[in-house]
């Protein structure tokens, strides 16, 4: 589904990703861990198309297409979803309006019919309940006045509604208490399916206790230095990055 080859990227002319290779197949859940500044968020943002990040080399194919040939919104419509580390607050745009615009914009780009309002409302209501997102939150302007946890739950709600084929979760666990973490993880797990892949970017192993990855990769200084199964996360939690960096 996603094939990253020798990816190099920089921010403000400072190289961050320095030749990253990663292949993700449908049905797989991958976790990327790494110390601060290793390039975890850069990877997420480059894949989503954030303009502050410059792609200097390498290639990424997504469902067989050159990802970098696609506009930001086209990537989304083709199934790429980034759950933001810091979801933006947008005063004046109601959460509900935003959700409806998103779904219908994607459907339109894929040549599907737009959802009718009653249909849309029914789906939102059901998924919102699953994530403890209240109707009151849906009426509020997008993320305005939301707590850190509410913002993250709102991200996962969007993910459940948009049903992407590739879910990229950038530090979704940051700012979540243990109860919120469980709600979010349950939401994410409900999306696990043979046609869907996930890329979970995280600092800590904690989230991975709830969302079991098939593969764990250690990202250091812009490159994946070690890959393994779920047990690698535990190793890392026990020994820290130091040994791994030293041995890499």
């Amino acid at each position: 589904m996603l094939e990253i080859k020798n990816l190099q990227a920089s921010v403000e002319e400072k190289p961050i990703l320095k030749g990253l290779d990663l292949t993700i197949n449908a049905g797989e859940v991958h976790a990327i861990m790494g110390p601060n500044g290793a390039g975890k968020s850069t990877l997420a943002n480059v894949l989503a198309g954030q303009a502050d990040y410059e792609v200097d080399g390498g290639s990424v194919s997504f469902h067989g297409e050159d990802l970098f040939e696609l506009e930001i919104e086209e990537r989304a419509a083709k199934g790429l979803f980034l759950s933001f580390q810091y979801p933006l607050e947008i005063p004046g745009v109601a959460t509900m309006t935003f959700l409806k615009e998103s779904i219908n914009a994607q459907r339109k780009q894929r040549g599907e019919n737009e959802l009718s309002t009653p249909n849309f409302m029914k789906i939102v209501k059901e998924k919102a309940q699953q994530l403890n997102v209240t109707p009151e939150m849906l009426r509020r302007p997008l993320n305005v006045g939301f707590s850190g946890g509410e913002k993250k739950r709102n991200e996962i709600l969007q993910m459940l509604l948009l049903e992407p084929s590739l879910c990229i979760l950038d530090e979704t666990d940051s700012g979540l208490d243990i109860d919120a973490l469980r709600v979010v993880a349950d939401g994410v797990n409900s999306l696990r399916s043979p046609d869907r892949a996930m890329l979970i970017i995280t600092h800590y192993q904690r989230l991975l206790d709830y969302i079991k990855p098939d593969f764990v990769h250690i990202l250091v200084d812009g490159k994946i230095v070690k890959s393994g199964g779920a047990e690698l996360a535990h190793e890392l939690e026990r020994d820290g990055y130091k040994d791994i960096i030293a041995s890499a």
Partner: peptide
């Protein structure tokens, strides 16, 4: 970027923000 990352085309995203 946030709006476009959810699939909303640039012009429509601009409209939403200006309207708000």
């Amino acid at each position: 970027f946030y709006l476009r990352a959810r699939g909303i085309p640039k012009k429509i995203a601009q409209r939403l923000l200006i309207h708000a």
